[in-house]
Design a protein around this nucleic acid. Structure first.
Lengths: 224, 224
DNA sequence: CTATACATACGTTCTTGGATGTATGTATAC
DNA sequence: GTATACATACATCCAAGAACGTATGTATAG
C-alpha cells in the first residue's frame, strides 16, 4: 500500500497521535521508541517520519490537540460581553475536572504530562511551552475575574494575583493527586464542590478577597 | 588507585548520589547515562556499579536520602504525647515549603520528581513507592489531626478524609506551581500564610470542619 | 507524469551489563 | 610486628542491542 487520499493521510496522522498517547502512557515518553508507536498505530516508522519531524514533534502535536477543547470554553468565559462571566468560569473549571475523570483520552494526556514525561532545561521549548501555558491561563483568569468584578459578582478589593495563584495551586493539586490516587476521593462527584469552595474563598477569605469580607448578591455557591 | 577505607567509600557513595541529582536535574533521568553521572562525580562507571545495582537503584537511593529529614519532623508531630500537635504539624508544613525554597539540594529532588522523571506502569515499584509515600503521609496526618482534635485544637466534627485530601492538594499544588514559576509568588515569605490558611479551613470551612451550620437541630453529626 | 504517502533498508551512535584487571585495606596467623 | 590471605573498591575493556535519522524504493492520487 502506498499513497492514500489526503483525508486518509490526515486520518493516519491522527492515528499516530492516538497511538503515541497510548504508548507514552504505557511506557513513558523517553522509553517509547518510534517503532513502538508505529506498531501501535499499525504503520511503520516511515509514516511517522513523513508526518512528524521526530518524537518530540509527535509529543507537541499531541499536546496541541489536547489544548484546543479547553481553549474554546475559556474564550467564552473571557468575553467582556458575557453577562455571567463568573458562571462561565465556574463551568470551565468544573468541565476540566470532570472531563479528566470521564474522558480517558483527556485524562491520559494529563497523566502523561504529570507522570510520564521529562522536562529538561529552562531553555527546553517544551518546558517553556508549559510555563507560557500557565502564564497565558493566568492572564485569561485575571481578565475573566476582572469582568466578574465589574459585574459585581466578586468584591472589588479582590487580590487578583493571589486569586490566580490559588487557582493554579488548587487545580494542579487536584488533578495531580487524583491522578495519582483516583480512589482517595470522588473528583467527578465533588468537582462542583471544589470549584464553589474556591469561589467562596474569593469572596470571603480576607487574604484573597480583600480586607473586609462582604456578601455579594447570591451566586451559585451551593454546598452539598 | 584502588581500595579505599570504609569511610572514604561511603563518601564516594554520597558523591555519586550528589552527582546523580545534578545530572538528573540537568538532563532528566532517562537521558542521564551512568557515564554522565560518573563523570560528574569524578569516578568511572565501575564505581557506580559497585555501590548501586543500576540507574534505578541510584535514583531510589537519592529519594531515600531525601525522605529522611522530613521523616524526623513528622514523627514529632505524630507523637501522641506531644502537647501541641497542631503547632508541630504547622512547623512541619512550613518547614517543607521553606526548605524547598532555601535548600537547593532539597528543591532539586522535588524538581526531579515533578518535572524530570517518568513513572511508567501502575506496577512500577517507583510509582508504587510514591503512592505509598502519599498514603503513609496521609495516615500520619490523620493521626496527627486526631491528636489535635483530642487536645481540643480542632473541631471534633472535622472530616479527616477531606482534610487529608485538601492537604495533599494544597501542598502538592503549591510546590508544583512554585517550582514551575518561582517568580509568580513568594513561597518563602508566604509559607506561614498558606499553612495558616489551610488550618483555618480545617476550623471554619463547613465542608471540612463539619456541618454545624447546615445540621438540623437535635443530634450529633455523623461523618463518613 | 509527478508529487505524495508511505514502506524498507542501512549505517551510526549510545548505552548497557558484565567480565576482567588491579591495587589497596584489613584481618588473622605466627 | 610482619607476612599472608582475602575482601574491597574501584578502573578498564568488550560484546550486543536498541534507537535514531536518512536514503531509497514504490504505488497511487491528482
Amino acid at each position: 500500500m502506498a499513497r492514500r487520499t489526503k483525508a486518509e493521510a490526515q486520518e493516519t496522522r491522527e492515528h499516530i497521535i492516538d497511538a503515541a498517547a497510548l504508548v507514552f502512557h504505557r511506557k513513558g515518553v523517553s522509553r517509547s521508541s518510534l517503532n513502538d508507536i508505529a506498531q501501535q498505530a499499525g504503520v511503520t516508522r516511515g509514516a511517522i517520519y513523513w508526518h512528524f519531524k521526530n518524537k518530540q514533534d509527535v509529543f507537541a502535536a499531541m499536546l496541541e490537540r489536547h489544548r484546543l477543547p479547553t481553549e474554546a470554553l475559556s474564550q467564552r468565559a473571557e468575553d467582556p460581553g458575557e453577562e455571567d462571566p463568573l458562571d462561565r468560569f465556574r463551568d470551565l473549571l468544573i468541565d476540566v475536572l470532570q472531563r479528566t475523570v470521564r474522558d480517558p483520552d483527556h485524562r491520559r494526556v494529563f497523566e502523561i504530562l504529570f507522570y510520564k514525561c521529562e522536562f529538561t532545561e529552562q531553555t527546553d521549548p517544551l518546558m517553556q511551552r508549559v510555563r507560557e501555558s500557565y502564564l497565558d491561563g493566568g492572564d485569561k483568569v485575571r481578565r475573566t475575574l476582572g469582568n466578574a468584578i465589574e459585574r459585581g459578582q466578586l468584591p472589588a478589593t479582590l487580590n487578583l494575583d493571589r486569586a490566580v495563584t490559588q487557582l493554579h495551586v488548587q487545580m494542579t493539586g487536584l488533578l495531580y493527586t487524583w491522578l495519582l490516587l483516583p480512589d482517595s476521593f470522588d473528583l467527578d462527584g465533588e468537582a462542583a464542590d471544589f470549584v464553589d469552595s474556591y469561589i467562596a474563598t474569593l469572596r470571603y477569605c480576607p487574604t484573597i478577597a480583600g480586607e473586609r469580607a462582604h456578601t455579594p448578591p447570591g451566586g451559585p455557591v451551593s454546598q452539598t
